[in-house]
């Protein structure tokens, strides 16, 4: 069994395919590196509230933040359409502001992910808030962030 094609034509075609596949994968890897393509919101990093408090998150760039929505933190601002709530990783809290209607599954005490930019006061101005459709589900990133705080086992999280 020979792996190499016998005819010149086939060999050339094989080369072409290899080059294409190789080029494609390289370019994809390069392009998906942060900041290199796609413009705003293309690729965003996930930060836990503790990361943000520690100043690890860049300002004015799209970031993802996730955690548990703090009980009692949700409130409607006076304009009637902006909602404010806090997410926690059981160590630090970050306030999130979102203009619009929150997803139906959004609930205090449950996991949520918000995407947006940090403003000067350290408030995340979200353009998307995600909550799970399935109440048993905890987004892996949120879970991980919580596990980092090593409180997962002691605090009975509503999963």
């Amino acid at each position: 069994m020979s792996i190499f094609p016998k005819t010149e034509q086939r060999r050339r075609r094989l080369m072409l395919v290899i080059v294409l596949v190789f080029g494609l994968s390289t370019s994809l890897i390069l392009l998906s590196l942060p900041g290199s393509g796609g413009g705003a919101g293309a690729i965003s990093f996930f930060y836990s509230p503790t990361d943000i408090v520690a100043g690890k998150a860049p300002a004015k760039r799209n970031i993802d933040i996730g955690g548990i929505v703090v009980e009692g933190s949700r409130k409607q601002l006076d304009d009637g359409v902006t909602v404010q709530f806090a997410v926690t990783d059981m160590k630090n809290n970050i306030t999130v502001r979102y203009k619009g209607i929150l997803p139906d599954m959004f609930e205090e005490g449950k996991g949520a992910v918000a995407k947006g930019k940090l403003d000067d006061k350290g408030i995340l101005v979200a353009n998307i808030v995600l909550a799970k459709h399935d109440e048993k589900y905890m987004p892996p990133v949120v879970k991980k962030a919580l596990e980092k705080q090593k409180l997962n086992s002691t605090l009975k999280l509503k999963q």
Partner: peptide, 24 residues
Amino acid sequence: LYPIISNGIQDRSISVGPPWFNLY
């Protein structure tokens, strides 16, 4: 898959948003 791969390699959680997909 990139978020999973990136998570595995760099231990960083990221998300790839619609603009990235649309771009290509």
